[in-house]
């Protein structure tokens, strides 16, 4: 009799240890959806974000974003050329200045997408060889792209100049008649 009680006690002890071990070693949310810790889903989802969207910029910089929306660069995200929102704003307050490319950085930024003769780019995409372009239009080599092309609305000045010269031509033609 005694040996049966003894072995039963041992079995009970083992079972108790197993349940205690499970209780303390298994994470709380384990098994809620499957063989993993379900709490991590929300932990991951709560991770802070660094990049906003153009609407975040719109709140303060409406003129620039508005300009962007009407031009050829309407599909661009502000944070591609500038820097992530998290380096600029935290808790609704400005914490740092955005990166604003100047001088040759501007050319580099433009040509990052628009450099001609890069194998792989779709042919319909507007591409330019800077030297060729400057030579054709007789522009001094030390000029930067943004001196003609407003970066946020690349064809703005070009279109204005074209319409001005068209108007002028029409005026001259009318005068001749």
């Amino acid at each position: 009799m005694r040996h049966i009680v003894k072995s039963l006690l041992i079995v009970l002890g083992i079972v108790a240890t197993i349940f205690l071990g499970r209780h303390f070693l298994t994470p709380d949310s384990w098994g809620k959806y499957g063989h993993y810790r379900a709490d991590y889903i929300d932990e991951e989802a709560n991770r802070s974000i660094n990049y906003g969207e153009n609407d975040s910029c719109l709140k303060c910089h409406s003129e620039v974003v508005d300009m962007l929306k009407h031009g050829e660069h309407k599909t661009l995200s502000c944070e591609v050329c500038h820097s992530p929102l998290s380096e600029h704003i935290a808790d609704g307050k400005k914490i740092g200045s955005m990166k604003v490319p100047t001088g040759n950085e501007i050319d580099k930024t433009c040509l990052n997408c628009h450099q001609k003769n890069v194998a792989g780019r779709p042919h319909k995409f507007p591409m330019i060889d800077k030297n060729e372009h400057y030579k054709m239009l007789e522009i001094r080599a030390d000029h930067n792209c943004n001196q003609c092309h407003t970066v946020h609305y690349p064809k703005e000045n070009i279109n204005k100049a074209k319409s001005l010269s068209r108007n002028l031509r029409e005026a001259v033609d009318n005068e001749a008649k």
């Binding site: 499970r22 209780h23 709380d28 949310s29 384990w30 098994g31 809620k32 499957g34 063989h35 929300d42």
Partner: peptide, 29 residues
Amino acid sequence: TVAGSLFVVVPMGAGDIFHELAEDHEKNL
């Protein structure tokens, strides 16, 4: 045997009686 079987043989998963399924999502999620 005991050390090995404790956490391997016993399936850990759904239906654990010790679990309290807490549901709290942050408001912005």
